[in-house]
Design a protein around this nucleic acid. Structure first.
Lengths: 326, 326
DNA sequence: AGAGGCAGTGTTATCGCTAACACTCGGAAA
DNA sequence: TTTCCGAGTGTTAGCGATAACACTGCCTCT
């Protein structure tokens, strides 16, 4: 920086100003400095800058299994939005979903002086972990439940579950079975409650929900049981991979979809339109959620207070796995 | 830090040593310092440390579309391995696969003083971009081709394509069609070459390959064409989503898999076992690739030279989408 | 004509840490 | 007994940037 200043015939301070507040420098000086920067290939030292400013320009994302479609897409949305605001994103993935491991992830990021953290772990243990967070670090939770003590950006799971259920009822089904996600997952329980509340409001029987673990395999296993019950004509499945497993189980049992059983999934993974049959499902706009989460975090960093919830409405995508009850 | 030193009755330097080279401090002093650290909740300032050491403890990953199964899994593998070596991972995803955008991604990371960068962009433009990289930054490429001027960790795509093809030939098929990935993708062309070389070695006819874009949709569209040709009894598809699309196209055309047509995919996504029929596919161990890439990068950072290639062998997983030719 | 203001630039003092060297003191070697 | 060594600790001097204030002209206003 000294060298650049020398070459441009100004002080180091002026170089700094050209880089951080160009409008405060006379255009011709600025040009001279920029030329010198170019010529010397000067790159400001990030560590020195953040040492003195106290801000790093880096955000952290704590997430469980970034291999899953949901977290991966959300992360992608966050990263894209962050880039537009000149922030970089560091990640800390979790081995397990416990209060401890979440605190540990946050700590890992914090030790590298991130300016704020977004947590993608829609699990009760996360909500727990959020209660014991350092007060001086801006934190936003993605997919968190009602009681969470930090701002939250999330898809309205309850609404999604309700939409799926109403769609199936509107096709004439007496009631709707539910293959849910694992208990303690916030989004799983939101979908379940949405499903249940519609059935209750309509005065329908509420079958015992079956809890899967999000995997196609668990969908398959529960599916074999459901396939045996002739009462089952409509199933709302809490995510698309489980729906895929269910489809296979039903087919192996000789049931046709949608003629014998209608199925609605959740997520709208890119492949859902090519399942057999193409899957009716509830689309979550993860990119949007990521963007909202980032915005909330930037607000928090800027000092805006208040426990905000930003809800994104999911959308029912009707394909060919649902049909009028015969 | 000053405060900690005061409370423990030592100098700041000793506190620093306790944190960075504990063995150089007498155990009882160390205990006193650690107690003081605990009591005051002291956390070393990352910026100050990296300002003076010149190292940041952060690695960068440049990647195209971290939403795809491959890149997402590789990233996950890298992050896990990085954590074990006390490194943090920052990400820069790319909007497009051009030489420019790759340089830009690297630059974005470099401006935050990452200690090294891993590039996940198995595309020719990446190999191009790698040629114009700053010399002073350790870089490792994942999935790069032969001519790449930096260390590479990759799955042996050629071998994977060959395994898939040999498997199909061993079932009595006269030859094997190929639904490939987009041209200019390194892994797509590796799989294609593996396929072609086996056919040629066996003296089989080499059908014109069809190029998809990795999506289920493109698999479906090409599939409609393949379904019309009664000659087609075996297809090697360059990834699982395209195979899914192909399965649907064949079924819609009244062809049975595997009775009429055998199909082999590539990737072994978690859902592949629940496709209809369960998909025979080539499994890539992305986690392993990520770990290898990280190791190569750490070596580079430590000053180890040499243009290394670390190849990971893929594995054929036989399920029910392939069968003996009738 | 003098005071005041403002745009543009320079000076100085840190930010929090560690590298490098200096010091102290007890015990082993001569 | 003296010398030397080395383990353990302290002192000093930056690392490269920016915040805060100081300075210099020139223009405007009274």
């Amino acid at each position: 920086m000294e060298d650049v200043a020398g070459l441009a015939g100004v002080s180091a301070m002026t170089v700094s100003r050209v880089l951080n507040a160009p409008e405060k420098v006379r255009p011709e000086t600025r040009a001279r400095v920029l030329a010198a920067v170019q010529e010397l290939g000067y790159r400001p030292n990030f560590a020195a800058r953040s040492l003195v400013t106290g801000r790093s320009g880096v955000l952290g994302v704590v997430s469980f299994d970034t291999t899953l479609y949901g977290p991966a897409s959300t992360l992608y949305g966050i990263e894209r939005a962050a880039r537009q605001h000149d922030y970089l994103v560091s990640i800390a993935s979790l081995e397990a979903l416990t209060r401890r491991s979440i605190a540990e992830g946050v700590e890992r990021l914090r030790s590298q002086s991130v300016d704020g953290v977004i947590i993608i772990a829609p699990h009760e243990s996360a909500s727990e972990g959020l209660r014991h967070l350092p007060k001086d670090l801006p934190v936003v939770d993605v997919g968190g439940g009602e009681g969470v003590p930090v701002p939250v950006a999330a898809v309205d799971q309850h609404s999604g579950g309700a939409r799926a259920t109403r769609h199936l009822l509107s096709l004439g089904h007496r009631t709707v079975w539910h293959l849910s996600g694992p208990p303690n997952w916030i989004d799983a329980s939101g979908r379940l409650q949405g499903w249940r509340s519609v059935l209750e409001a309509e005065g329908r029987e509420v079958p015992e929900p079956l809890a899967g673990d999000w995997s196609a395999q668990s969908g398959y296993e529960h599916g074999r049981r459901l396939a045996r019950d002739p009462e089952v004509t409509a199933v709302f499945v809490a995510n698309d991979p489980m729906a895929l497993g269910l489809l296979r189980a039903l087919r192996e049992a000789g049931k046709r979809v949608p003629e014998d059983v209608s199925i609605v999934g959740f997520d709208d993974v890119p492949e859902a339109a090519y399942f057999w049959p193409p899957l009716t499902t509830v689309r979550q706009n993860f990119g949007e959620v990521g963007g909202q989460a980032l915005q909330l975090l930037l607000d928090r960093i800027a000092g805006v207070e208040g426990d905000v919830r930003r809800m994104v409405e999911p959308e029912l995508v009707v394909r060919e796995s649902t049909a009028q009850l015969r």
